[in-house]
């Protein structure tokens, strides 16, 4: 009895925090999403979301593409790291984490100086008389920004799971006739799946709700749902902002539920 009381007390600060800053705001979001400007219950703004269908789909596609690219980039890195000497692992971990020491806004802003019309790339191409290329404002630039910012969140969970794969399992696979590819397919991939699921979750969720990156590196054609939400709130259109937020939460929840179907029981982030 005493210990369970103690356990409750330990949890109390977080429960309080969660109630105050997660649960109550969610209720407020739902309240604004389902009311009109007078505070009457209404589907007015939920229905209006149809106007933003294109942006919603674009956000989904961008996030999916960015997630897929980070996965392809991160997986070999995570594998290589996990099989390296401890000193190499630490060094590589540092390199992966290093960009995260800098603020996301600054990181993204510095990309504009590389990609813009008079930026590094175009100045370089200018020497050969090529260009200038239009890079900023394209969907490619936005996805690049997302990949750059979120790739560590893909590497870390995959790496963590991979370090737990005992080397003797890989040796056993080789012993039983597996060459490199079959070892990857039959042992490494299935055993690292929980890390992949976590990584996808940790990249997909911030990607789909990205707003700053698409503003700095994109243009009007690459607006994402996060940008719209920000603008609605800036324009004090709380009901529209809240209903967009609400729908996006639903979209994310559905995406995560689909993801979790791929992981068995013990891996991934359970929603």
């Amino acid at each position: 009895m005493k210990s369970s009381l103690g356990r409750k007390l330990i949890n109390a600060p977080y429960l309080l925090w969660a109630a105050l800053f997660i649960l109550i705001p969610l209720i407020i979001v739902a309240y604004y999403a389902f009311t009109d400007t007078q505070g009457n219950f209404s589907f007015e703004y939920i229905v209006k979301i149809g106007e933003y269908k294109e942006v919603l789909i674009r956000s989904l596609v961008y996030a999916a593409v960015a997630t897929a690219i980070t996965l392809v980039m991160a997986y070999p890195v995570a594998y290589y790291m996990s099989r390296s000497k401890v000193s190499t692992q630490k060094m590589m971990m540092l390199l992966v984490m290093l960009p995260m020491w800098m603020n996301l806004l600054i990181r993204t802003y510095s990309w504009t100086t590389i990609l813009e019309k008079t930026g590094l790339i175009n100045s370089f191409l200018d020497i050969f008389g090529i260009g200038p290329l239009k890079i900023i404002g394209t969907s490619g630039a936005v996805i690049l920004g997302m990949v750059y910012n979120y790739v560590p969140y893909m590497i870390l969970p995959i790496y963590t799971v991979m370090t737990k794969i005992d080397n003797s399992l890989l040796e056993a696979a080789e012993d039983l006739g597996s060459n490199g590819f079959s070892k990857l397919k039959r042992v490494i991939l299935p055993l690292s799946l929980p890390g992949v699921i976590s990584g996808i979750t940790m990249v997909f969720v911030p990607s789909i709700s990205t707003f700053y990156i698409s503003q700095k590196l994109g243009g009007p054609q690459t607006q994402m749902i996060g940008d719209i939400i920000q603008k609605r709130f800036d324009a004090l259109s709380y009901n529209m902002g809240a209903s967009l937020s609400f729908v996006m939460m639903i979209v994310i929840l559905i995406s995560l539920a689909i993801m979790n179907r791929f992981s068995d029981d013990d891996g991934g982030i359970i929603v």
Binding site: S168, E171, A172, E174, D175, L176, N179
Partner: peptide, 20 residues
């Protein structure tokens, strides 16, 4: 020659069974 090219099989110290 790598292990998979040898007509040899191994029983490992802690069995190394595939957990998945």
């Amino acid at each position: 020659a790598p292990p998979y090219k040898r007509q040899v099989n191994t029983i490992f110290q802690r069995y190394a069974l595939f957990p998945h």
